[in-house]
Computed example of a mutant assay.
Amino acid sequence: MNSFTSIMGLCAGAGLLLTVGIGYKLVWRSAPEQGASPAPPISWAGWSITLAVTGVILTVSGGVMYLFYPLDVPGEQSKNFIFGEPSAVYGLLLIATAAYLWRRGSHLTLDRIYAVLSPIALLVGGIGLVMTSNAVGALGNQIFETAPECEPVLGTWPSWIIGPALTTIITILPGLGCLAFSAAAWSRKRAAWLLCGAAWTLAGIGLVALGVFVPGAHIFMEYCALSQ
Rank of each mutant, 00 (worst) to 15 (best):
86 P>A: 03
87 S>M: 05
91 G>I: 00
91 G>T: 00
93 L>M: 15
95 I>A: 02
99 A>I: 12
100 Y>F: 14
100 Y>E: 09
100 Y>G: 04
101 L>C: 05
101 L>Y: 07
102 W>K: 08
103 R>I: 14
106 S>K: 14
106 S>T: 12
107 H>G: 08
109 T>H: 10
109 T>S: 11
111 D>K: 06
111 D>E: 14
112 R>I: 02
112 R>G: 12
112 R>C: 02
113 I>E: 11
113 I>D: 05
114 Y>G: 02
114 Y>W: 12
114 Y>K: 02
115 A>N: 08
116 V>H: 10
116 V>T: 12
116 V>Y: 13
117 L>C: 04
119 P>Y: 06
120 I>M: 13
120 I>G: 03
121 A>G: 09
121 A>W: 00
122 L>C: 02
124 V>W: 00
124 V>I: 13
125 G>M: 00
126 G>A: 09
130 V>Y: 11
132 T>E: 01
133 S>F: 12
133 S>N: 10
134 N>G: 01
134 N>I: 09
135 A>E: 01
136 V>C: 02
137 G>R: 12
138 A>N: 03
139 L>I: 12
142 Q>F: 09
143 I>H: 06
143 I>D: 05
143 I>G: 03
144 F>C: 03
146 T>Y: 03
147 A>D: 06
148 P>L: 13
148 P>E: 08
149 E>A: 13
150 C>Y: 03
151 E>K: 11
153 V>D: 08
156 T>P: 03
158 P>V: 04
159 S>Q: 14
160 W>A: 09
161 I>D: 00
161 I>K: 06
164 P>Q: 02
164 P>E: 07
165 A>P: 01
165 A>I: 06
166 L>N: 05
167 T>Y: 03
168 T>F: 15
168 T>N: 07
169 I>P: 05
171 T>P: 01
171 T>Q: 14
173 L>N: 10
174 P>F: 05
176 L>W: 06
178 C>V: 04
179 L>C: 10
182 S>R: 13
183 A>W: 15
183 A>K: 11
183 A>H: 14
183 A>F: 15
184 A>L: 07
185 A>F: 02
186 W>N: 15
187 S>P: 05
188 R>Y: 04
190 R>N: 05
190 R>M: 15
191 A>C: 04
192 A>I: 01
192 A>V: 02
193 W>S: 04
193 W>A: 03
194 L>F: 15
195 L>G: 12
195 L>D: 02
195 L>T: 15
196 C>M: 15
